[in-house]
Design a binder for these strands. Structure first.
Lengths: 139, 139
DNA sequence: CGTTTCGTTTACGTTCGCGTCAAGCATTGA
DNA sequence: TCAATGCTTGACGCGAACGTAAACGAAACG
């Protein structure tokens, strides 16, 4: 056999290594697997997470920060998947991704607006605070 | 009395008008009131939503789209509130808003990244699709 | 006058995204 | 060999954000 010493199964991670790397719990990773968001290799009873799983998890966590549900994220992940989809399936996925892109661009516009507004309110807040301070000083 | 004809309580809306305008259910509005996100006037038993409630609801719905929890949103709303807060309270609100702003700016960067990546995948998807089409044509 | 039409409260139900045991196998080190 | 450690599979629990059904009050309309 060409491989010795622990087989060095290249580039896979145990569940604990995953948890430490991404700051999630084992429960979360198993939950995502149950929801078909991740597909770790099963070596005997244990899970081994590949490069692909890591990439997917990154996208999952990002999606969550954008307020997407796990189901929405799952559908998006299919797009990033070098899968063996046939014509109609591929077309459907493509369609879906276009919509998500539109969603995200709308969301960005809103986000810009919201940031702008919040900046204004913060400026107003600073005024209030400094006004209060000078009033305090006057006593 | 200076007012006749239905009192035209200027600029308030019934719960139904609110629902139609913002595409939410009555339950949702009552729920938000219970959580102290909205404060409609009570005329007898009924609720009347003011301009202020409408502005707040708009911010609530926006916040939700950004993935904020109702509690986080409630705290942010205090900032937009021409409230009678005292020094320490105002300072706390200000502090919190700064953090949220930072959150949103980080989210914006991530969003840009995500949009960029999704665009790339879409381009890749188009290739696949056109490849499939020419293959079909060849048969 | 009765009966729809709104609105209300109360309260239990539901879905999502995990947390938290309990009980069991499996490797590992003393 | 034996206990500790790590990972596993259920299974139940939980907070958030509402849905939904029951039972009632008030106003509006023919």
């Amino acid at each position: 056999m060409t491989r010795n010493r622990k087989m060095t199964e290249d580039n896979v991670m145990t569940i604990r290594e995953m948890c430490d790397t991404f700051e999630v719990t084992p429960r979360t990773l198993r939950f995502y697997e149950a929801k078909e968001l991740l597909f770790p290799i099963r070596q005997g009873t244990k899970r081994l997470f590949t490069r692909r799983d890591r990439a997917r998890l990154k996208l999952i966590l990002r999606g969550k920060r954008f307020g997407f549900s796990l189901e929405e994220i799952r559908q998006l992940l299919d797009l990033y998947n070098p899968s063996d989809e046939q014509g109609t399936q591929l077309a459907k996925t493509y369609e879906l991704a276009c919509q998500r892109l539109a969603d995200m661009e709308r969301q960005r516009e809103e986000l810009d607006e919201a940031i702008e507004e919040l900046r204004n309110r913060l400026a107003w807040g600073e005024e209030q605070l400094s006004a209060l301070k000078s009033k305090e000083a006057a006593e």
